[in-house]
Simulated scan of single mutants.
Amino acid sequence: MSDDPFGDLDAAMGDESDSESTTEPEVDDGAPTAEETESDVADEPADPRKSPAFEFDETVHKALYVLGAVATEFDDIITYDVERELTRDHGLQNIKKSELHNAALSVVAEHPELIVEQVLEQRGIDSE
């Protein structure tokens, strides 16, 4: 007996694959195979109501330092207001937090003047 606890696993799997090769050949019933279905799906544009705007692996992780109350309020708004409206009123499915966070930061990036006003307000400085 070898020290490898999985040493005989290949042999056991090999026996199983041998039994698979003795099964009856599949009959072509005209239905698309999994490979054909995948290639057809790749050729068709994804339904924007059913899939996120981008894949998670396209994102980067960034740390944001915020007060706990602001983080809680942001999470609540994203989850209970934004996500609910997108689902209920616009029929979106499969909404990812990364997609919502990206949209929120995009809105902020388009309005830097609001960031300036908020920082001044947080410090108690009149912006006028």
Rank of each mutant, 00 (worst) to 15 (best):
A109T: 07
S19H: 07
G124L: 01
T22P: 00
V66R: 09
P112L: 12
H90W: 11
S39F: 10
D75S: 13
E38Y: 04
L92N: 09
D75R: 04
I78P: 00
S106G: 06
D126N: 13
A12V: 07
P112V: 06
G14N: 13
Q118H: 10
T72A: 09
Q93A: 15
S19A: 14
D75E: 14
V41S: 05
V66S: 12
K50V: 04
T37C: 01
T72D: 07
L100T: 02
E20C: 06
G68Y: 01
A42M: 09
G14C: 10
E20N: 12
M13E: 05
A104N: 00
S106R: 09
D15W: 09
E24D: 14
G30T: 06
E35N: 15
V116Y: 05
T22N: 07
P5I: 03
L100D: 00
I77N: 01
A31H: 03
P52N: 09
D10P: 02
P52L: 11
E110T: 11
P5L: 00
V119P: 01
P52Q: 02
E83A: 12
S51I: 06
G14I: 03
D126E: 15
R88D: 11
V116C: 08
E16L: 15
R49L: 15
N94C: 12
D40Y: 01
V82N: 03
T23P: 00
G7I: 03
E55C: 14
P25K: 01
T23A: 05
Q93D: 15
T79K: 01
A31M: 13
P32A: 03
S19V: 11
F74P: 00
N94M: 14
K62G: 08
I78C: 13
